[in-house]
């Protein structure tokens, strides 16, 4: 069971309080009707499936209730960092996964 840093609670808390919510930084288009079928398909279904550091969404569902983003290494299953929804993906090049 992982400890996950909630950027709203500013605390590392048990994984049991959290729920995974898919890949991060996929914004719902402002005007979906303007998208071609292919563009809409990509928005709906196409995900990066990263091997390595992955930007993903979590919700502190059994805590403060907030959705937030995190960078997690999918190989080691270790979190690099977490940040609030709406914030840009931090540059973590060269940074070691957090313990």
């Amino acid at each position: 069971m992982l400890l996950i840093q909630c950027p709203y609670c500013d605390d590392a808390l048990p994984e049991l309080e959290f729920a995974y919510a898919g890949e991060a930084h996929i914004d719902r288009p402002q005007d979906p009707s303007a998208l071609s079928d292919e563009e809409w398909r990509d928005f709906l279904f196409i995900r990066s499936n990263v091997k390595g550091v992955h930007a993903e969404r979590w919700r502190h569902i059994n805590g403060c209730g907030r959705f937030f983003n995190a960078l997690r290494d999918t190989v080691s299953d270790r979190f690099v960092t977490s940040y609030k929804a709406g914030e840009p993906r931090p540059d973590t090049s060269g940074k070691e996964p957090a313990q």
Partner: peptide, 9 residues
């Protein structure tokens, strides 16, 4: 704080 007790929030 909101947390879990077994399967219950």
């Amino acid at each position: 704080k909101r947390t879990v007790f077994d399967y219950a929030q």
